[in-house]
Amino acid sequence: MADSVRLEYMIDGDNFTSAGEASVMVKKSLRQMGFDPETIRKVSVAMYEGEINMVIHAQGGKATVDVYDDKIVIVLADRGPGIPDIELAMQAGYSTAPDNIRSLGFGAGMGLPNMKKYTDEMTIESEVGVGTTITMVVNV
């Protein structure tokens, strides 16, 4: 396997205003590494949606980003409530976010669809009561 650079972040589940910090830091790192703007945009938007999901639903979690020459792999892992019906959760417009989250401009049911849209591969492993791990790959 080719060498990779690993970036790791803990996502703080209690702090909604700092949600997105990890995505912005990843964006900055990828820019310094010289990736093209469209690749950076895909990775940072997909990761931001995941980060917001972890804050809304799972009291935070951990983000790991492995940067290879030809792809970027993002793994978002939480110990939240899990997703009972992944197919339903993937439907655009379906949301279980509470009203206070909607008033912040989230909860439109676009998070997971956006993550899929902006990445080349996405897998969701989830167990109710245990947690969720989402792996996303963006090819460079």
């Binding site: 205003t17 949600a19 995505s23 949606e49 401009g105 989230f106 439109a108 676009m110 998070g111």
Partner: peptide, 28 residues
């Protein structure tokens, strides 16, 4: 004004017109 919607649709280098003014607007 729906931030995820904007993230899914807005192009890079756009002017974004919104009434959403919370801190996440800057992140988006």
């Amino acid at each position: 004004d729906l931030l995820s919607w904007v993230m899914g649709r807005a192009s890079a280098d756009c002017v974004w017109v919104t009434i959403m003014t919370n801190i996440n607007t800057v992140a988006v």
